[in-house]
Amino acid sequence: MRPLSFTHRYEPALTPDQPPLLLLHGTGGDENDLIPAGRMVASGAALLSPRGKVLENGMPRFFRRLAEGVFDEEDVKARANELADFVAEAREAYGLAAPIALGFSNGANIAAAMLVLRPETLAGAVLLRAMVPLSDPPRTDLTGKQVLMLSGAMDPLIPADNSSRLAAQLQGAGAEVKHTILPAGHGLSQQDLSLTQNWFLNL
């Protein structure tokens, strides 16, 4: 098999009835970061975990930013399309259905961008500590797509109105969004994992 366009890790499904997970790490993470979380929340699912191609001070990310919380939106668009193309390659190579994205921070933001730019790529998404990736997103139809958003009430990086705006954008496009604000900061908590696990059980 020819090499795919992203450095990645792939773990085959253990049970056939769960949708695959596309694991998208935060800044400074890599393709190994979210494998344990993926196994915890969807124990039998196939796991596809790419490494972001953008380096910020040596730390992998999925797109460039101009400053903390200020995204290079042209790069967001280009990288979201590039990642969507990789997902299509990987689906063909590994025989996968459309995955559900499980993204944290920068990974959640690129997942949100893929939802609005390439909605056919994802069956749904779990967005952990996500922000609005595009200030003026294109009109898109997300009818039937399930999205779980988990935000932190004490998150120093993401203003509460920003995550609420993203939830409203996705709902406005037809997605079924469950947005929960946890008593947490920017880091992931055990509550994030248990809520995500319950959400998967009820899909």
Rank of each mutant, 00 (worst) to 15 (best):
V41F: 03
M59F: 06
L34G: 02
I100H: 02
A101G: 11
A101P: 03
M59C: 02
A46K: 05
V54E: 10
M40F: 07
P12Y: 05
D85W: 01
Y10P: 00
D30Y: 05
E31K: 07
D75Y: 03
R65I: 05
F71K: 06
A13G: 15
A13I: 00
L14S: 15
E74H: 11
P99T: 11
L96K: 06
L96P: 03
A13S: 13
G44W: 01
D17C: 08
F62V: 02
R64K: 14
H8V: 00
L21I: 08
S49I: 02
T7G: 04
F6T: 04
G38L: 08
G103Q: 13
A90I: 03
E73V: 01
L22H: 09
I35G: 03
L83I: 05
D75I: 08
R79C: 04
A46L: 08
A37F: 02
P19C: 03
E74T: 14
L83W: 05
F86L: 08
L21P: 04
A97T: 13
A78M: 07
P60N: 13
G28A: 07
L21E: 03
G103K: 09
F63M: 11
E11N: 08
P20Q: 02
G29K: 01
A80E: 05
V87I: 14
P50E: 14
V70Q: 15
L34A: 01
S43W: 05
F63D: 02
Q18F: 10
A97D: 12
A98T: 11
D72E: 15
S49T: 08
A84E: 12
A80D: 10
L4G: 04
F6H: 06
G69T: 02
N32F: 10
V54Q: 05
P36D: 13
P16A: 14
N81H: 10
P12F: 06
A67L: 07
E92R: 14
L55I: 07
L66E: 11
V87N: 11
